[in-house]
Amino acid sequence: MKKYIIITVVAGMLAWSFYEFFGSSANETGQEDAGLETGQAAPDFEVETLGGDTVKLSDYRGEPVIINFWATWCPPCRAEMPDFEKLHKEEDAVILAVNLTHSENNISGVSAFVDELGLTMPVLLDAEGSVEDSYQLSAYPTSYMIDSEGVTQYVVRGAINYETMYREYMALE
């Protein structure tokens, strides 16, 4: 009896996974509607960078992009920032580090943090919180990995280490 229970459970898991794998592959049509789920086009936005330039997400169509929402008061955000910088430098990854500026005490604190870590990736300023609202953030940090078609392929709420960001970024390419 025990033997059949175990075989049935494993067979059930195999059947379910096959159904999910081949069923979802058949349904993949490259959804273009904007949304926050994986498989949907990431909502576009336009904000200023710390350097004073204007950046628009849709300008990066044609290459994979990582959007990382962060703030200086958030310990896991601070912890993962050097790894994003490493990915940016070593793999030439496009990383848009969107600072939740409206939640910061002042912008000089953001500048000091960027200088302290020697960040060279673009630091975007969400001064009004409009980008945070459109992405309905519920955890800090949150990162969106977007493919060259502008479609979100991976969303991670909470910090990730270099190995995970590298693995997921490579999967975009």
Binding site: P75, P76, R78, A79, A159, I160, N161, Y162, E163, T164
Partner: peptide
């Protein structure tokens, strides 16, 4: 060195391989 300055940053960060 990071833990002494910012313990939460280390504890909240996922460990690597």
């Amino acid at each position: 060195h990071i833990f002494l300055a910012d313990p939460l940053a280390v504890l909240a960060y996922p460990s690597d391989s």
